[in-house]
């Protein structure tokens, strides 16, 4: 499974985390800029040229804030929650394939953390762990709004994880592998799976929105009704941790979507990581666009939508795909 020197793996991890964390900082700026333009505002434009230094200013502000723990909080869990959220989000990066193997300075380097034969399951497992950050954070704050946010996020996780899992099984059947690298190669040999699994793609993106708590599925933090939900009591670096986890999860979900349905790092002329970055960028702009456009769902409708529309649709999609693959549709 792993045939690289330890140092190579370490350097890769540092580089990937550095790039993705920088991306996270500018993703927040991009979101604020784009949303501003969509709402006929300028967005941040005072810090540096075009507001490009805004992330740095935000970082300084977050770091200098008081590290505050409310009196009614459960001290241990309150500290643990943002750590779990960030840990899960960063861990998911380890299986995303950014490119194929290359040779750099005489070293054989795979442009992915590790090619597990169950890579996709690792992402689902870590997203489940990441949700505990929200649930624990909401519970441990000792605040009723935070607790309601935690309860909502628990219910949301349970209803949408199943639909998300089922929506990708069609892709797995077509590629006949759980390894993300194999899935990309299978698409490079045939066509992008968005053409064969359009329903699967839409279901995955919808469930992905719910999994990352993005509007219109941001019920756990709904600022209008729950103040800010599970992270009401968080400030400073701990709040930054939750924000980082949310945006990293956005990057992870869109990368997985690009890998499963849009051919991942495969593409002509340009190197693999650039292709993946382009695809991820387009999907993320889509997510921001949805946030600026769609109003938040009412809570009971969110649950009904998950159980009564997404889940049956995902099951139907799965059955039809199984039938077609079983009847010998040429999948390679």
């Amino acid at each position: 499974m792993i045939q690289e020197a330890f140092l190579v793996i370490l350097i890769k991890a540092v580089v990937v985390v550095f790039i993705v964390v920088t991306t996270f900082a500018y993703l927040m700026l991009l979101e604020r800029k784009l949303m501003g333009r969509m709402q006929l505002r300028y967005g941040p434009n005072r810090t540096g040229p075009f507001g490009l230094l805004q992330p740095a200013a935000d970082l300084v502000k977050m770091l200098l804030k008081e590290d505050f723990t409310p009196a009614g909080a459960n001290k241990v869990l309150f500290q643990l929650a943002p750590v779990m959220a960030v840990f899960a989000a960063v861990g998911s990066l380890s299986v995303i394939p950014f490119g194929d193997s290359v040779t750099l300075w005489g070293h054989h380097v795979n442009l992915y953390g590790t090619d597990l034969n169950v890579g996709l399951l690792l992402v689902f497992a870590l997203s489940g762990i990441g949700f505990y950050g929200l649930i624990l954070g909401g519970y441990a704050s000792g605040n009723k709004y935070a607790l309601l946010g935690a309860a909502r996020s628990a219910a949301q996780l349970v209803s949408y994880e199943v639909a998300m899992g089922l929506s990708v099984v069609g892709v797995l059947m077509l590629a006949q592998s759980l390894s993300l690298v194999d899935i990309v190669h299978a698409q490079a040999d045939t066509v992008w799976y968005i053409l064969l699994q359009p329903v699967g793609f839409i279901l995955f993106m919808l469930a992905g929105l719910a999994e990352t708590n993005r509007p219109p599925f941001d019920l756990p933090e709904a600022e209008g009704e729950l103040v800010a939900g599970y992270h009401t009591e968080y400030g400073g670096t701990k709040f930054a941790g939750f924000a980082m986890a949310e945006y990293l999860n956005m990057i992870v979900v869109t990368s997985i979507a690009a890998t499963l349905f849009l051919g991942g790092f495969s593409g002509p002329w340009l190197p693999g990581p650039i292709w993946l970055a382009i695809k991820v960028f387009i999907l993320i702009v889509g997510l921001i666009w949805i946030r600026a456009t769609m109003p938040r769902l009412r809570y009971d409708r969110l649950m009904k939508f998950g159980w009564k529309i997404l889940l049956p649709l995902a099951t139907l999609n799965l059955l039809i795909t199984a039938l077609v693959v079983g009847l010998g549709f040429p999948n390679k």
Binding site: V118, L121, A125, G128, Y132, I135, Y139, A154, L157
Partner: peptide, 26 residues
Amino acid sequence: APFVAFVQIIVYAGAIVTLFLFVLAY
């Protein structure tokens, strides 16, 4: 047995304990 390992995390550590916490929180 990585498959069983991740299914263990998804199903037990992920979904079932979430339900426990949901009930306990309420």
